[in-house]
Every structure is written in C-alpha cells, then in structure tokens.
Amino acid sequence: MKFARDTWLVFQRQTQLLLRNPVWVFVGVFQPVMYLLLFAPLLKPALNAPTQAEAYKIFVPGLLVLLAIFGGLFQGFGLIAELRAGVIERSRVTPVSRLALLLGRSMRDVVSLLAQAVIITVLALLFELRVFIGDLLLAYLMLALIALMTSAVSYGVALKVKSEDALAPLMNTVAQPVLLLSGILLPLTFAPGWLQGVAEWNPFSWAVDGTRALFAGDLGNDKVWQGLSIIAVLAAAGVAWAARQFARSVR
C-alpha cells in the first residue's frame, strides 16, 4: 500500500515536470511522426513488399521497439541532472520506498513511450495498416516491458557513473550493436547465417520478432511468448538491480 502510494507520488511528480517542458512534448510527438512520414515512401520498394500495408506491418513494430529501447536508455541523463541538483539525496533522507523512486520514474517513461506508440499506430492506420486490437495490446505490453527494462538499467547505470560524460559513450556502445543486431529497422531474414546466429543472443531480436508476429496477426507464433518471457525476465532483473542502486547510491 505504502509502496503503491509512493510510486504514484513519484510518477505524478515526474509526469508533471515532463509535461511542463514543451520542447520535450514537441520532440516526443513529432520525431516518430517524421520517421513514419519520411520513411514511408521508401518502404514498399525497399522491403519488396506487395503493398504499403504489408510494408508497415514490418516497419512499424520495428520502429516502436526502437523507440522503446532508446527512449529508455537515455533516461539516465535526466536522473544525473536530478542527482546534481540534490533532489535524489533529498528523497533518500525520507522514508519513501527506494523501489518507488525507481519505478515511479520508469513508469513515466513507459507511459510516455506508450503515448508515442499510440500516435504512431493511429497514423499508420491511416496508411492502411490493419491489426487486431488484442494483438496490438499484447504488442504494447512488450513495448512497455522493453521501456521498463531499458529505463531501469539506464537509471541504475546513471547512479553508478554519476556523470553525463561517462553515461553517453556507455549507452551508445550498448545501443549500437543491440540496434544493428536486432533486425529492428530491416528484418534479419536478409542477413547471412552468421549474423542471424549472433542475433539469436540478442534479447531485443526476440522482442522484435515477437512484436512483428503480433502485428502480422500471428498470435500463435512461438516468438510471441518467447519474446515476452525473455523481456519480462530481463525487465524484472533490471528493476531489481536498479532499485538496489537507489538504496545505496553515494552522493
């Protein structure tokens, strides 16, 4: 009960500050829209898809997973600013739940990611993407878990390194191979065998495959439950680890 209340408190505060920043709202909404509009004309020929709708079925889930990964991974920067302002230390002298300090923030990240996802999906519907609502909700669950994991990890790392200078290269080094080896923007079906072999070890590759299967209406596909399980386990581990950093971080 106290934990739920504390989480809600942190979530409210973080969301309020986020909405107060018009620049962020603008970027958060328009960036994905740009992806969709500017990439759209290239998709059909590039993916060799029979129709525009088919191309979107491949591209949109990839784009959403991409946003979930990056949206999460770079949240740590905001936390470092809070560390510097002394806001984290101020929270840590109160009896507020340490897990709530983390989860309230991550929940805001998840919600803002889902808001972006809804905007993109609705736009894609205008471009004749069709997807079952049940499948779509499961896909959103996958996205939420991805964002939860990446933002939690980002917060944990931020508390450990405590400086933007260390966080930026670290996150880029992680994000790049993850991105390239997940088949996010283009499916790895075109990739040589060894590359596919490497991608097997990339959890995000499973997540992308699962999300694509859902957008394709292929709920029975094993990739769906496999992707969801892998990401759920990793998200739980990420949250547990990051919450410990909140409990014991120094300065």
Binding site: V87, R90, T94, P95
Partner: peptide, 19 residues
C-alpha cells in the same frame, strides 16, 4: 536540494508527502 523547474510550494508539498 531544489529542482529548478518546480515551485517552492510544489517542492514542499511533494516532500511532505514523501514522509
């Protein structure tokens, strides 16, 4: 320990609620 973009009142209410 104050955040640039919030007001004194907001900070005080939030902090009390954290207790």
């Amino acid at each position: 320990s104050t955040w640039d973009d919030s007001t004194a009142r907001e900070e005080l209410v939030l902090h009390a609620r954290m207790y």
